[in-house]
Every structure is written in structure tokens, then in C-alpha cells.
Lab assay of single mutants.
Amino acid sequence: EEAIQNFKALLSDMVRSSDVSWSDTRRTLRKDHRWESGSLLEREEKEKLFNEHIEALTK
């Protein structure tokens, strides 16, 4: 649960536009030290959280 919250915070800070792809964003996020705290999450979970974040940005 904490890993999810940390990853959501990372997305909020780093992803402000809804027209970015997961693969491009992932490359950028990996450069942030907080990426490692999400290592407990599966890749699919990270992508799902990313997609939810993008959906929220479009509303």
C-alpha cells in the first residue's frame, strides 16, 4: 500500500500531461530516486496506476 502511494505521488509530480505514453514516461520516471520505492510493485500494477493517473488528468 505504501509503495502504491509513493508511486502515485511520483506520477503526480512528474506526469502533468495526458498525451504521454507509458514507455516514454517510464524512462523519465526511472531517473527519479523514488522509482526504486516502487520496486515492490509489479510492472503491470505500475502501468495500471499510470493509466488511472492519465484518466484523471483528462477529466
Rank of each mutant, 00 (worst) to 15 (best):
E1H: 04
E1F: 02
E1M: 09
E2W: 03
E2D: 02
E2A: 07
E2S: 09
A3M: 07
A3E: 09
A3F: 06
A3C: 04
A3I: 11
A3D: 14
A3H: 08
I4F: 06
I4N: 04
I4Y: 06
I4R: 13
Q5G: 11
Q5M: 12
Q5A: 08
Q5V: 07
F7C: 03
F7E: 01
F7K: 07
F7V: 00
K8P: 00
K8C: 03
K8A: 01
K8M: 06
K8G: 01
K8Q: 06
A9E: 12
A9P: 02
L10K: 06
L10W: 04
L11G: 06
L11A: 03
L11T: 03
S12P: 03
D13G: 01
D13W: 00
D13T: 04
M14P: 02
M14E: 08
V15A: 01
V15K: 01
V15S: 02
R16S: 11
S17Q: 11
S17N: 12
S17L: 01
S18K: 11
S18G: 09
S18H: 13
S18P: 15
D19H: 08
D19K: 11
D19L: 02
V20P: 01
S21N: 12
S21V: 07
S21R: 08
S21F: 00
S21H: 05
W22A: 04
W22Y: 04
W22R: 05
W22E: 09
S23R: 10
S23G: 07
S23Q: 15
S23H: 13
S23F: 05
S23T: 09
S23V: 11
D24L: 04
D24A: 11
D24G: 01
D24C: 04
T25S: 10
T25E: 06
T25Q: 11
R27Y: 06
R27V: 10
R27A: 13
T28Q: 15
T28Y: 08
L29F: 02
L29G: 02
L29A: 02
R30A: 14
R30T: 10
R30N: 10
K31T: 12
K31A: 11
K31D: 10
K31S: 10
K31R: 11
D32S: 01
D32M: 07
D32C: 04
D32W: 00
D32G: 00
H33L: 09
H33I: 14
R34S: 02
R34C: 02
R34N: 07
R34E: 03
W35R: 07
W35D: 09
W35K: 05
W35V: 03
W35P: 07
W35Q: 02
S37F: 07
S37E: 13
G38C: 15
G38D: 14
S39Q: 13
S39C: 11
L40Q: 14
L40S: 14
L40M: 10
L40Y: 08
L40T: 14
L41T: 02
L41Y: 03
L41V: 08
L41E: 03
E42R: 15
E42V: 10
R43E: 15
R43C: 15
E44V: 09
E44T: 11
E44Y: 06
K46S: 08
K46G: 14
K46L: 09
K46Q: 14
E47D: 02
E47P: 00
E47V: 05
K48C: 06
K48H: 09
L49M: 10
L49P: 04
L49W: 00
F50V: 01
F50I: 03
F50Q: 05
N51F: 08
N51C: 02
H53K: 01
H53R: 03
H53W: 00
I54R: 09
I54F: 00
I54H: 04
I54N: 05
I54K: 08
E55N: 11
E55M: 10
E55Y: 09
E55F: 07
A56E: 14
A56N: 13
A56V: 09
A56K: 13
L57D: 05
T58Y: 01
T58I: 06
K59Y: 04
K59S: 11
K59D: 10
